[in-house]
Write a protein that binds this DNA or RNA. Structure first.
Length: 809
RNA sequence: GCCGAAGUGGCGGAAUGGCAGACGCCAGAGACUUAAAAUCUUUUGUCCGUUAGGGCGUGCGGGUUCGAGUCCCGCCUUCGGCACCA
């Protein structure tokens, strides 16, 4: 049969139009079919357009979505744009273009690129977080959080460039200086909006037991939440000169059993104790100097264990160890962080590595309270087996018992109690930026913080001329007095709007709910839609989003569930992750490294189907992989071979007997591997099948049908085109996924390897029905086995049916 | 530093504790062609050997096991995250 050339340039736009005209991939909000909601992380529409990394997870879930449709599901596979954010704003500042214009331009480029790859997104549900119709509901959710006491204002440090006089994102601070001007960056305290995610720490932990996330994702979230059990202990502070009792200093410890070994205390340099007792601290100047120096370091720099510990003694104020009654010194050191626990610790140098390093550095006493190590040589941190010494009434007890006893004792004497502590910190929700959702709160001199009434949402971003933050560190909106000055919704007095905006995380914390009912202007989604589509069945994204976006969105969803507006506590039933695509040189793709691959170029040269195949074939889906342009050609070659199969298709709907095992084996492999995201081996098995078909030269219409159905989710355009050319019926997207016949895969005999002491020395063909006992009895007499043993006595024979025979000689 | 991963031919990678290197790329040889491209056939971990065959091989060092790329202990290196990039 004469066939036309394979021309992706022609057939790909053709099928994209057909699917679009037929609304082939639009999800129905009511259906008799079972539902499947597959979700990818919606992109940030950057100025650079899609790079080769984007299509990897998109193609993966597109394969799942297309396969599910063929398997008879009503599939929701949506797309949108997470379009607020810093890069757009910085671009707007630099080029004096409104960020909305920049955003629109970027979105339209992204949209076009996604369409050219043939993703089966439901374009009728496209959303954009910067659309007032969308961010109205982001603001609405914020108001609910506020009304339930989960949004509050608190003093938090921001990075502040002393030269540009603007607040900076962490990313804009490089090596401790401002990325743009190289100026000095300090931490400045500013009142900021916070969300009380810590109130959900336990729920977020417990919820993990109910969902199907990869273990490494659960592990990272658990560690991030960082639950630890211990005790809070109050230390009496005293004036060192007069001995007069001052306030209590509270610490959290996971090792209350070591209380007798607490020989000093350490507070974070920002600890309020310093200001409270400034008049009593005799070396207050030195302490303040130390505090200023610490303000220049990040938490990350401060807690590095390898570096030398720094610190300054707080003279004039001491603490009383409640167990020993001893007066112990207090130090300020930056290895204690204000953000974790109480910002103060009891130091037990004998049994904590950081305390040990600090004590050695400053000559503080090290007192052993758990026997078993040499605490003058190194900290002894074993908790399981130690026995208490030098610890009064705890002596002779094991660590776990001592923990209980001392905590009970503290409790009885009103000096402390059992305490569960989380590493998780509340979420700083303010940004001193223009391109974000305005926070719908008014600050009234009489009423305080007043939420905007819900009927006034959305609170629109005003038009401003200048997107630069103001030189006192306030948001650009603060300079927009027409907008910022308003009246109090409660008392009508003149009042001021909140001028900080929300972080980009806000819009992405609930977007998957909007897809369920994107055009609803009465609610963020109707209860029916939420009920029908929830939960997301399969959410794939990057590992880099595990601890922030994924946790933030789980938090919001738990909250929405608690106030009764969504039907499930957890948003995502299943979460998987993909590896990054690196540049050809093995480094992260970035403009500055000059190793960015643009999918448009690949499509122009090889076609979208080749791009999709290659992205899925180049390696294990969950691992980072460098791009190889040569590998792309191999995938195109495979599609060419598939195309040319048409030359020798015979007019039979049967699968030839001799090919049944190959064809059904491939159906099984592709069906199962796709579910496990083993796309590379699924493709390999289709390549193997095509090689077999070429070798046999016997391709019936029946065989071709199955090959095309299997390949369709991976390479949808070429398969539809061949299907049509060969007259195989209505388009593939209306067809059914094939099933394999297990009987086709059964074999009577199997050839297995024979090992001697674990090394392969020969092979033998055995019946698959040969039992283990029978084999171990009869095989030593088998001529082949005897030959392999070569006269040596067989001491033992291990037979694993269908796998191996191992002789021990 | 802390948390989570990864390390296998020239390259990307495959392998429920059971034949290491499937599939693909690159490279070599051959066929077709006036020629080239494309395509097809074929070789390809490495070392010794004419062959038969054998030695060595999954980051490094130990261990468990009849058997380890896979499990355990200790290292090294690389990647992701570390809360205002998203």
């Amino acid at each position: 049969m004469l066939i036309p050339d394979y021309s992706p340039r022609t057939i790909e736009p053709k099928w994209q139009r057909r699917w679009s005209d037929a609304r082939a991939f639009e999800a129905q909000n009511t259906s008799d079919k079972p539902k499947f909601y597959g979700l990818i992380e919606f992109p940030y529409p950057s100025g650079e357009g899609l790079h080769a990394g984007h299509p990897r997870p998109y193609t993966a879930l597109d394969i799942i979505a297309r396969k599910r449709r063929l398997q008879g599901y009503n599939v929701l596979f949506p797309i949108g744009w997470d379009a607020f954010g810093l890069p757009t704003e910085n671009y707007a500042i630099k080029h004096h273009i409104h960020p909305r214009i920049v955003t629109e331009r970027n979105i339209s480029r992204f949209r076009k690129q996604c369409q050219s790859i043939g993703f089966s997104f439901d374009w009728s549900r496209e959303i954009d977080t910067t659309d007032p119709g969308y961010y109205k509901w982001t603001q609405w959710i914020f108001l609910q959080l506020y009304k339930h006491g989960l949004a509050y204002k608190s003093e938090m440090p921001i990075n502040y460039c002393t030269s540009c006089k603007v607040g900076l994102a962490n990313e804009e601070v490089v090596g401790g200086v401002c990325e743009r001007c190289g100026g000095e960056v300090v931490r400045r305290i500013k009142k900021q909006w916070m969300l009380k995610i810590t109130a959900y720490a336990q729920k977020l932990l417990d919820g993990l037991d109910t969902v199907d996330f990869l273990d490494k994702i659960k592990a990272q979230q658990r560690n991030w939440i960082g639950r630890s059990e211990g005790a809070s202990v109050d230390f009496q502070l005293v004036d060192q000169l007069t001995g007069v009792q001052l306030k209590l200093l509270r610490v959290f410890t996971t090792r209350p059993d070591t209380l007798f070994g607490a020989t000093y205390m350490v507070v974070a340099p920002e600890h309020p104790l310093i200001d409270n007792y400034a008049d009593k601290i005799t070396n207050i100047d030195a302490v303040c100097r130390y505090r200023d120096a610490a303000a220049h370091k990040s938490d990350f720099e401060r807690t590095e264990i390898a570096k030398d510990k720094t610190g300054v003694p707080i003279e004039g104020v001491a603490a009383i160890n409640p167990a020993t009654g001893n007066r112990i010194p207090i130090w300020a050191s930056d290895y204690v962080l204000m953000g974790y626990g109480t910002g103060a610790i009891m130091a037990v140098p004998a049994h904590d590595e950081r305390d040990w390093a600090f004590a050695k550095r400053f000559g503080l006493p090290v007192v052993e309270v758990v026997a078993g190590g040499d605490v003058q040589a190194e900290a002894y941190t074993d908790v399981a087996d130690g026995v208490l010494v030098n610890s009064g009434f705890l002596n002779g007890m094991r660590v776990p018992d001592a923990k209980r006893l001392i905590t009970d004792w503290l409790n009885e004497h009103d000096l402390g109690e059992y305490k569960t502590q989380y590493k998780l910190r509340d979420w700083v929700f303010s940004r001193q930026r223009y391109w974000g959702e305005p926070i719908p709160i008014v600050e009234c001199p009489h009423c305080g913080l007043v939420p905007l009434p819900e009927d006034q949402l959305p609170l629109l971003l005003p038009e401003v001329d200048n997107y630069l933050p103001t030189d006192n560190g306030e948001s650009p909106l603060a300079a927009m007095t027409d907008w910022a000055n308003t009246t109090c919704p409660r008392c009508g007095a003149s009042a001021k709007r909140e001028t900080d905006t929300m972080p980009q995380w806000a819009g992405s914390s609930w977007y998957f709910l909007r897809y369920m009912d994107p055009h609803n202007d009465q609610a963020f989604a109707s209860p029916e839609a939420l009920d029908y589509w929830g939960m997301v069945d399969w959410y794939n994204g990057g590992m880099e989003h595990t601890t922030l976006h994924l946790l933030y969105s789980r938090f919001w969803h738990h909250f929405l569930h608690d106030i009764g507006v969504v039907p499930h506590a957890e948003p995502y039933a299943k979460r998987t992750s993909h590896g990054m695509i690196l540049g050809g040189n093995g480094e992260k793709m970035s403009k500055s490294r000059g190793n960015v691959i643009n999918p448009d170029d690949v499509i122009a040269e090889f076609g979208a189907d080749t791009l999709r195949m290659y992205e899925m074939f180049l390696g294990a889906f969950d691992q980072a992989i460098p791009w190889s342009t040569q590998g792309v050609a191999g995938c195109r070659r495979f599609l060419d071979r598939v195309w040319r199969i048409q030359q020798f298709v015979t007019d039979s709907d049967k699968i030839p007997d001799k090919l049944r095992a190959d064809v059904h084996g491939c159906v099984k492999k592709v069906t199962e591997d796709a579910e496990r995201m083993k796309f590379n081996t699924a493709i390999a098995s289709m390549m193997t099948l095509v090689n077999v078909l070429y070798n046999e030269g016997d391709v019936t219409r029946g065989t071709l049908r199955i090959l095309l159905l299997l390949l369709n989710p991976f390479a949808p355009h070429i398969t539809e085109e061949i299907w049509e050319l060969q007259g195989l019926g209505a388009p593939i997207y209306t067809q059914r996924w094939p099933e394999w016949d297990p009987t086709a895969l059964e074999q009577d005999e199997v050839e297995i390897a024979v090992q001697v002491d674990g090394k392969v020395r020969g092979r033998i063909t055995l019946s698959v029905n040969l039992g283990k006992d029978e084999a171990e009895r009869t095989l030593p007499e088998h001529p082949t086995i005897k030959g392999i043993a070569a006269g040596r006595p067989i001491r033992k024979l291990i037979y694993v049916p269908g796998k191996i025979v191992n002789l021990v000689v």
